[in-house]
Amino acid sequence: MKILVCITHVPDTTSKINFTDNNTKFDTTGVQFIIGPYDDYALARAIELKDAIAGTTVTVLNVGPADTEPTLRKGLAIGADDAIRVNAEPTDSFFVASQIAAIAKETPYDLILMGRESIDYNSGVVHGIVAELLGIPSISPVMKLDLDGTKAKLAREIEGGKEYLEVSLPFVAGCQEPIAEWKIPNMRGIMSARTKPLKVVEPKAVDSGVKLQKFELPPPKGSVKMIPADNVPELVNLLKNEAKVL
């Protein structure tokens, strides 16, 4: 079985977000980049399936410029067999999804996994677009995925609950916890990742119909009003008469 895992290269979850160039560019100063946390769950599940099902290979894919390669190498260190980088800025969801679909059209995969959303653009639509472009089902956000031959059983999170589904391969899944535990690469993985194949392909031209104009930061939060622990009714008074939320 061939599994494709699409990973994003995103700022660490503790990053302070700032912009430069008149609020048109993300400021990378001092920012550490990681595999998107949701993508990391997808990758962890793919490696578990590879370990469980003989003859399974896992390919990690990222659409991004050359400086995302350490993130792909980390995916290889975690256990993927090979990597593909589509050499382009991931400008928007449709662009990225079109690149993924183009790769998957050339080499069919039985299963395409990715995070439910990236933590930079938070679109949550790439899996759906890829699946529509390939004409196969898409399911997200997936919190459990088991395979039995070509049949899959999944659990999907819905507002206030869960839904259990069945679908046949091939399909696309947007993943989240607790589908698997995040994996930390070990020394052997890190060493072998250096020599695993990483293929760079050029993007195909896509007009996605969206254009970023500018970024904006939310206004800074005012200071907190502290209420003494022995005067709890004062909090209720403030919520009622000052904030007017009760």
């Binding site: 679109s123 949550g124 997200s140 999170e157 119909g209």
Partner: peptide, 20 residues
């Protein structure tokens, strides 16, 4: 959990600009 994935597929079908 339903609206966003549906939006992705519809936008792709009709060639729409998409924003979530």
């Amino acid at each position: 959990s339903l609206g966003t994935p549906v939006a992705a597929r519809v936008a792709t079908k009709i060639g729409a600009s998409l924003a979530s």
